[in-house]
């Protein structure tokens, strides 16, 4: 934790001026919601990494005779033929296949976080490349790229993802990555382009060019670092969006396939049963909301920290 003492004093004391990342962290540290969100994200990452250790049971293990056990601490199976599950406790109950909901939710963290991060990474790659070239070169390159961006943007994103996923024979994690990643880059491309446009004509770029910097060097060393802040914010927010997207695709049966658990898939399975067994419909959804909320709040916090003038 950085020292909460007056900022000016500490900045003066250490002779080197605080770097941009340090200043960012200091501003972020003052935002309690964002810090909590960061904590939750850290916890979720741990849960995903340590799923085999943390999950009470194997995610696909079927406790015969313990179907639809309501959530509880102590074994709630009363009937003698359920001996196998008698001393077990199911924190979040069991599903119609007698699998432990809690274990499945723990493993589901892996799917959600992986999809959120990988799909965002794909979006960032495409979006940054398109935005940089469009903004830097302008002219017909810009015109073509922006028309393509408009077109993809005009497609309701989940539907384009649905179309992409539906075309492949077997839905898999990779298809979900691609579907969400290939859809989400448009807003990032627009953002990067507008950033590049505002930086491109500044004096220091002219100076870099006068010193003999080539296009690639100028783009990579001088323009991209100046666009980084908004890109990081957009990326963080898009992780949350992609997790929601994955849940939606899985809910439509297009995501990760059984028996591997994903939160959206668990809710899809619950559709027929949750009216009688509420826990099937409640816990996976709660997991989605907490995760997405954490990324959104952290992204909002980052944005405020990067641009202190905004808000308030």
């Amino acid at each position: 934790m950085p020292d909460p003492a007056p900022l000016e004093a500490s900045a003066l004391a250490s002779h080197a001026p605080a770097g941009p990342w340090r200043m960012l962290w200091r501003r972020l540290a003052r935002n309690r919601a964002a810090l909590c969100a960061l904590g939750v994200i850290g916890l979720l990452a741990l849960v995903a990494l340590l799923a085999p250790v943390l999950a009470p049971y194997e995610y696909s293990y079927q406790f015969r005779g313990a179907e639809h056990v309501p959530p509880g601490w102590s074994g709630s199976c009363r009937r003698p033929e359920e001996a196998q599950a008698a001393e077990r406790s199911f924190l979040m109950g069991t599903d119609p296949n007698a699998r432990d909901t809690c274990s499945r939710i723990v493993y589901g963290t892996r799917v959600s976080l992986t999809v959120g991060v990988v799909a965002t990474f794909i979006s960032l790659l495409i979006g940054i490349a398109v935005g940089l070239f469009s903004g830097f070169y302008g002219g017909w390159i810009d015109a073509v790229f922006m028309r393509v961006t408009d077109t993809v943007f005009a497609f309701p994103s989940v539907l384009l993802a649905v179309a992409i996923t539906a075309v492949f024979d077997r839905p898999s994690l990779w298809v979900v990555f691609m579907a969400l990643g290939l859809v989400g880059w448009t807003s990032i491309a627009r953002l990067v382009r507008s950033q590049v446009l505002s930086v491109r004509t500044l004096d220091y770029i002219t100076a870099a060019r006068a010193l003999g910097g080539g296009d690639a060097r100028i783009l990579w060393r001088h323009i991209l670092p100046n666009c980084l802040g908004p890109i990081v914010v957009a990326g963080t927010l898009s992780i949350g969006g992609n997790i929601l997207g994955e849940a939606g695709l899985s809910f439509l049966g297009l995501g990760v396939q059984e028996p591997y658990p994903s939160w959206g898939g668990m809710l899809a399975n619950a559709r027929q049963h949750y009216q009688d067994y509420w826990w099937l419909g409640v816990f996976p959804g709660l997991a989605i909301v907490i995760t997405v909320l954490a990324f959104n709040l952290f992204g909002d916090g980052l944005r405020d920290a990067l641009d202190p003038r905004a808000q308030k």
């Binding site: 849940a247 949750y274 959804g285 909320l293």
Partner: peptide
């Protein structure tokens, strides 16, 4: 904040649980 983080289909399920069931 919660509203933008909640999946529509889950909210529908919750409302059904509350108001219908």
């Amino acid at each position: 904040s919660v509203g933008v983080s909640i999946p529509a289909f889950w909210l529908a399920m919750l409302l059904i649980l509350l108001f219908s069931v």
